[in-house]
């Protein structure tokens, strides 16, 4: 749910990075954090376990600049990917304006991707949202690893609707900003259509 503040001339939008455990959601945010100018970002918060697995969420506020005199602020969240954290994962989706699904390209994680995508749809439906109606992009991460499924195979399985999709290697930053830009753009176009 976007928040438009005419008094301080700000648009606030929420992006959630979703995907199976260890697919690289937090790494996406860490790369964005490292590569963004200090005045355009806030503090990155990670609520993680001692072994650096996301426990509740990571949070990164970003300012992209102005549009018609309004500051555009994006709040980036990741969910905990591990299956048993479903209750927490569902909470993060509340009020989401755009979704990035980060898939793990490794062949042995194919089932985990499908399961996570189904879980995303189920959890969105509980809030009365539909993935088809939300700004949504897919990122195929870990393309640098040797045992990956082909892009065609992943696309066929995870992206039957043909939403924008990107190959990525998050620790090196490949595809990270392209993914973010694509979803942010869809969100602004959506805002324009909804016309506040």
């Amino acid at each position: 749910m976007s928040f438009i503040n005419y008094a301080s001339r700000e648009i606030n939008l929420k992006i959630v990075y979703y995907g199976p455990g260890l697919c690289g959601k937090t790494t996406n945010l860490q790369y964005i954090y490292q590569r963004t100018a200090p005045d355009a970002k806030g503090k990155m918060i990670s609520l993680a376990t001692e072994t650096e697995r996301t426990l509740f969420f990571d949070f990164l506020p970003l300012s992209l600049g102005e549009i018609k005199g309004f500051k555009t602020r994006f709040h980036l969240y990741t969910v905990p990917g591990q299956v048993f954290y479903d209750a927490s994962r569902k909470l993060i989706l509340k009020g989401v304006d755009g979704v990035v699904f980060v898939a793990d390209s490794q062949a042995e994680r194919l089932d985990a991707n499908v399961e996570s995508l189904e879980n995303l749809q189920d959890n969105l439906e509980e809030y009365g949202y539909k993935l088809e109606k939300l700004p949504y992009v897919i990122q195929y991460n870990k393309r640098d690893l040797p045992n990956v499924s082909s892009m065609d195979e992943l696309s066929k399985l995870l992206n039957p609707r043909g939403v924008p999709e990107f190959s990525a290697c998050a620790p090196k930053g490949e595809g990270v900003f392209d993914t973010l830009k694509a979803v942010a753009k869809q969100m602004l176009v959506n805002l324009k259509k909804s016309g506040h």
Partner: peptide, 9 residues
């Protein structure tokens, strides 16, 4: 849950 509309201030 019920989907809420944007908050406009």
């Amino acid at each position: 849950f019920e989907a809420q509309s944007s908050l406009v201030l």
